[in-house]
Amino acid sequence: MFPAPGAWLAEGGKPAGGVHIMAGLDNKGSPTADPGGPVVAGLARAGDALVHTLTQGATLALWAARKIAATAGTTADHHPFAGDYARWVERVLKPGYSFR
């Protein structure tokens, strides 16, 4: 059904080492704007470049990518898009990762 990992599975898929414990992992976002406005215009971040979460990473990444795809080309001036995107991230995505 999934041919790409076939060679790896044929070798038995043995781990390279033991299990390592990770601690201190938090949901964290990286702001796209400060009180003066967008930090960068012409660059829209999504996924781990925008927010790191323990459980919602793919969902938030796809949601951000959908927003970018729907609105990024609507103006030649990047500043309005950057400001709108920063406000959208705060309003829509931030509640999804800042509740813990």
Rank of each mutant, 00 (worst) to 15 (best):
T55I: 13
G96Q: 13
A58T: 14
P38L: 02
A65K: 02
G37S: 09
R87P: 00
G42H: 08
V39W: 10
I21D: 09
A16N: 03
A58K: 00
V39K: 15
T55A: 14
W63H: 10
R87L: 05
K28G: 00
L9A: 12
V39I: 15
V89W: 02
T32I: 08
G96T: 06
F2Q: 11
T55H: 10
W8Q: 04
H79Y: 03
N27Q: 11
P80G: 06
L43G: 04
L50D: 02
R87N: 08
G12H: 08
H20N: 01
E11W: 07
D26C: 14
A64I: 01
W63K: 12
V92L: 02
G57F: 04
G17K: 03
W63A: 13
T32V: 13
V89T: 06
T53I: 10
A10I: 02
D26K: 15
A10E: 04
A41I: 02
H52Y: 04
A41T: 12
T55L: 14
M22S: 11
G6W: 05
A64V: 01
L60P: 00
T53C: 10
G36W: 13
G47D: 13
S30D: 01
W8P: 00
Y85R: 04
D26R: 15
G42K: 05
P95T: 06
G83E: 10
L60D: 01
H78R: 09
W88N: 07
T55Y: 08
T74C: 07
L9H: 03
Q56F: 11
S30H: 08
Q56L: 13
E90I: 02
R66H: 13
G13A: 14
T74G: 14
A69I: 03
P80W: 05
A72R: 06
T74E: 15
G73A: 13
H79F: 03
L9R: 05
A16W: 10
Y85H: 04
W88D: 05
S30N: 09
I68R: 03
R91Y: 01
A46V: 15
D26E: 15
H52T: 08
F2L: 15
R66W: 12
G42R: 05
E11G: 13
G6E: 13
G47H: 06
W8I: 05
V51I: 12
D77Q: 03
T75G: 11
H79Q: 04
G24N: 08
G37A: 08
D34Y: 09
L93H: 02
R91V: 02
W88H: 09
L9S: 03
A44V: 10
G47Y: 11
H78Q: 08
W88Y: 13
A64S: 11
L93V: 11
A23T: 13
P38T: 01
W88E: 09
L54Q: 12
R91N: 05
V19G: 02
R45H: 08
G36K: 15
V39P: 00
A10R: 10
A61W: 04
G36A: 15
A49V: 00
V89F: 06
P35L: 05
A72C: 11
G37E: 10
K14H: 12
Q56E: 13
K67Q: 14
D77P: 02
S30I: 11
V89G: 01
A44H: 11
G12K: 07
P35V: 04
E11I: 05
P35H: 06
A10T: 02
A10G: 04
L9T: 01
T59F: 09
R87K: 15
